[in-house]
Design a protein around this nucleic acid. Sequence first.
DNA 1: TAATAAGTTGACACTTTGGTCAGGTTTTGT
DNA 2: ACAAAACCTGACCAAAGTGTCAACTTATTA
Lengths: 210, 210
Amino acid sequence: MPREHNEPDEKIRERNIRLIIKAGIEIFSRKGYDGTRIAEIAEASGLPKANVYYYFSSKEQIYTAIIAHLLDGWDNALKFITADREPADAFRLYIRAKLDYTRKNIAETRLFASEIIQGARFLKKKDRQHIRDVTDKHVAVIEGWIAEGKILPVDPRHLFIMLWASTQFYAEFEPIAADGLKKSRLKVEDYEMAAQTIAETVLRGVLPRE
Amino acid sequence: MPREHNEPDEKIRERNIRLIIKAGIEIFSRKGYDGTRIAEIAEASGLPKANVYYYFSSKEQIYTAIIAHLLDGWDNALKFITADREPADAFRLYIRAKLDYTRKNIAETRLFASEIIQGARFLKKKDRQHIRDVTDKHVAVIEGWIAEGKILPVDPRHLFIMLWASTQFYAEFEPIAADGLKKSRLKVEDYEMAAQTIAETVLRGVLPRE
DNA sequence: TAATAAGTTGACACTTTGGTCAGGTTTTGT
DNA sequence: ACAAAACCTGACCAAAGTGTCAACTTATTA
């Protein structure tokens, strides 16, 4: 088996940790925490099991490293609901960015879903607090728009959940979504069409009539 | 430990299978297929492990029995999108029924999500076909409404996914949904409010302006 | 280039797992 | 009451699981 070679300047440590995390994301996302076997991660990353333990002292440590990595990714992807934009633009951008992120990071998205379904056992208090804070900030922006009459009075928290849920779905439930769309696999165009439908419907749903 | 006593006339076999399935739903939903240990199901159902194997010959058999049971439940719960209703009523009823079902069957809902995330390994071809058929039927009704001008031209499949996703979310992602709503746990009123927000928004989103 | 640090790994210890089985007890039909 | 059927279960496997370790090789640094 040809050894994956380093990117330029990438240290051995960095490369191996990257390989382990990458394999871990894939396998944890499919099997959940309890269902994942370290040996499988080792095999998928091309390292012997003992070498995995050289970098991580336990299964839990690999898992929590991945969760942290994942939450980081989201923060970068989602900064589009700000008060200085028009609601229509903000929603459209948000929906598109979220769908884009999930499409390009299907395994991470599934892993997060898996973690929550399994009881959010490894989501730290501060991680949850962080999610709450981000939500609150967005909610405040929406409430501002409502006060200005820019959108209709809708419960902003449920509205948010609706957007979150709709955009998550395509990655998490890919086989079901594909069945529903009568495709064998989802392609970029399907995500594109999803973004359009969600944005159109929700915008007509919340913008005041002219 | 006090033995759970029979419901009147319930045969031993029925009772034990019921107990095993019940425990199985709870544990499979939390741990996924690979993560679930038969010993844990045995303990949760109050039977010795060997007794579980007296009724089911393998882990897989328990799991697939549960999946079948679950799909049955859905068929009963969701019969509200029919061409003879007005769109507004049909959507409102569907959203409410789905949220009601997920609220009362949280573990089943999570188990289904878990199964899909883990690659739909045990969802039989005919089950998927059945889901497709039901979807197609609903899609046809929506297309009918569009043709009659009763609702705006929206992609019916993506619209459906939106409804499905939004209504699933509260059960699957309960901790996140609760965080988002600033509650410690979701109550009936929260599901009620969710139904209202989703229905209002989507209806304004698809009904033609007067 | 020599010493030290970092990385690698086969083999091992110990635990848990799915599943079996022989032999017991209880329920049921007649 | 008695036999047959249904039910129950402690003890047991082989396989698979997590994590360890001592001895080895490769990289780094002065």
